[in-house]
Design a protein around this nucleic acid. Structure first.
Lengths: 113, 113
DNA sequence: CGAATATATCGACGAATGTCAATAGATGGA
DNA sequence: TCCATCTATTGACATTCGTCGATATATTCG
């Protein structure tokens, strides 16, 4: 019943996707969604995301130790999640503080049905 | 407020994960979840999944053409999704019919918050 | 049985990915 | 200004991944 033009899930740049069940994804919609799921498809990034989500705001400097990864690796993963729009960073002084973007997680949830 | 022992999301083999926001993921929980998200992190697999989800049941033979991929590639992706428990297959005669596993999608949705 | 068809597996290939050491860039304090 | 510190980038490496042709396996039909 839901047509392609109803219950659309808003993703970053451009309109994207009804829930998976309602109709087959177009190629560009699938590419957009896949990029987001791929960002969650790594255990280090998932733990990183949950560390940020558990608090309101987390500094990059407080992520290396709980993740057990080097500073460049942490930076690599925060960049990946930020590129996906799942977290957003704010630089204050020498420190980089990260927050989750709840709408983005909600959009993924919606895409799953 | 939610402790680790409440609102747990049941994944395949073993207990797994409260929602991302409630507490940082353990390594094994993150590995389990990441495997699932990685399965969704490919545009071909997402389109494949949405093709199956849009109908009740889809034969492998009806996937090659809409996906524009070779038969081995389609088989590769159905196997990946099946290994992740997101679809389940039933062989009838020469044909393999695939259905989505709604609980599995619901579990992922729950893990996102 | 033998031919035809649907699916799975194998092998190979290029591309993408996760990791870290080394280095560069930015910021604040002495 | 100079140094210490936090973050980002670069380069290199091994590993994984997506893809397809070729082949193997399974099943139905004559």
């Amino acid at each position: 019943m839901a047509t392609r033009s109803r219950n659309l899930i808003q993703l970053s740049d451009g309109v994207c996707c009804a829930p998976l069940q309602s109709s087959p994804l177009e190629e560009d919609e699938a590419a957009e969604l896949a990029m987001l799921f791929a960002a969650l498809g790594d255990p280090v990034r998932l733990r990183l995301l949950s560390l940020i989500a558990a608090h309101d705001e987390v500094c990059s400097c407080d992520l290396e130790e709980p993740l057990g990864k080097s500073q460049p690796t942490v930076s690599h993963h925060t960049k990946a999640l930020a590129d996906a729009g799942l977290i957003i960073g704010e630089k204050r002084g020498r420190w980089m503080f990260w927050r989750v973007v709840p709408d983005r997680l909600a959009a993924l949830r919606a895409a799953l049905g």
